[in-house]
Simulated scan of single mutants.
Amino acid sequence: MREPLFLIGNVNVDLVMGPQEPWPQPGTEVIVPESEFRVGGAAGNTALALDALGVDYRLVTSRGNDMLGRWLAEPFGARAEAWTVAEVATTVSVGIGHPDGDRTFFTTTGHLHSFGLRDVLPQLDQEGGGCVALLVGPFVIPALLADYDELIAILERRGYRIALDTGWPDGGWTDEVRARVAAWAGHCQHVLINDIEAKGLADTDTVEAAAALIRPLLPEGASLVIKCGPRGALAWRGDEEVAIPAPKVEVVDTIGAGDTFSAGYFASLAESDDLAKAVERGVTVASLAVSTRPRRYR
């Protein structure tokens, strides 16, 4: 994969604060020790890591027509010139950290709720030429989600190799959601999900059982990658099975860990088709990212 990677999905503003415990009473004010204002969203997190890793990519997304939207575009320079500018406020996600490392998020609708297929298509090449199109965050982009089947069909017709990172569906893994994702997976050369998502998709109690049910959904020769957080990652491609443990690190911030894994994974595939090396690179990049502040990827 030496051609540019097309990254299609959600970029929004993150305001991360905390840690805070217990949850405050209404009407009170709480002073927290830390806050950080940064680019967020699955596509935003992946793109920042790809930049740091020196991977050529195109970011297909949108922003709001306001001060925050202009701020969101700044780190991406020329890559943001083709973004759709929605005549609404930019989506903001406020994450409140807890002492155990978990976070509670409050997210506005904003520009992501108006980002649809009509915005994506002008940012794509008419001929994919074998480039990977990595689809991320479909369940937080409702307008695009409504046309996801058509988007995948168009990408396939144009010659893109499709990769998918579903994220967690709003409303959970209903039978309808499972059926939709299963249909998408049948067109994907790479499916990258975390262990909780895998068990939700397959409706199983273990990652191994989930993998056994998901793998037959994929085309022949496609890769299934399951990200297992502090336990590393597992992957399958044909008869090949890979298990890469994560190094022990002091976790500072887990937001976007799976997204940075994807960046490391595809950075490796840009150099070699070695699945084990790609998974190892993903684990290494994600482990470094969650254990550093300011965040580092290499």
Score class of each variant (00 low, 15 high):
148 Y>E: 07
171 G>Y: 11
266 F>R: 04
192 L>Y: 10
188 C>D: 04
48 L>I: 11
8 I>D: 02
188 C>A: 12
196 I>S: 12
19 P>N: 03
190 H>P: 00
110 G>T: 03
166 T>M: 14
277 K>R: 14
214 I>H: 03
125 D>V: 08
30 V>M: 12
29 E>Y: 10
222 A>Q: 05
240 E>H: 10
90 T>R: 01
190 H>S: 09
200 G>M: 09
282 G>K: 07
106 F>M: 06
276 A>V: 11
70 R>D: 10
146 A>D: 05
90 T>C: 01
71 W>L: 11
194 N>R: 12
218 L>H: 01
220 E>D: 15
57 Y>T: 02
51 D>R: 15
76 F>V: 12
195 D>G: 10
149 D>Y: 08
106 F>K: 02
144 L>G: 02
32 V>C: 09
271 E>H: 14
89 A>P: 05
139 F>H: 12
288 L>F: 02
118 R>K: 15
137 G>Q: 13
237 R>F: 09
209 A>F: 01
4 P>A: 06
222 A>T: 03
133 A>C: 08
228 C>S: 13
169 P>G: 01
194 N>Y: 13
192 L>Q: 14
34 E>N: 14
162 I>C: 08
160 Y>M: 09
36 E>I: 15
167 G>D: 07
150 E>C: 14
264 G>A: 08
213 L>R: 15
49 A>W: 09
205 D>L: 13
207 V>I: 06
202 A>W: 03
236 W>K: 14
141 I>N: 02
213 L>S: 06
213 L>G: 12
213 L>Y: 05
135 L>T: 07
249 V>N: 02
237 R>A: 11
265 Y>K: 14
267 A>T: 07
248 K>W: 00
159 G>K: 09
171 G>V: 08
33 P>S: 08
233 A>C: 10
83 W>P: 01
39 V>W: 04
213 L>W: 06
77 G>W: 13
240 E>A: 13
188 C>L: 06
269 L>G: 04
115 F>E: 03
55 V>N: 09
1 M>C: 11
113 H>M: 10
118 R>F: 06
170 D>E: 14
61 T>Y: 02
60 V>H: 00
226 I>Q: 12
139 F>V: 07
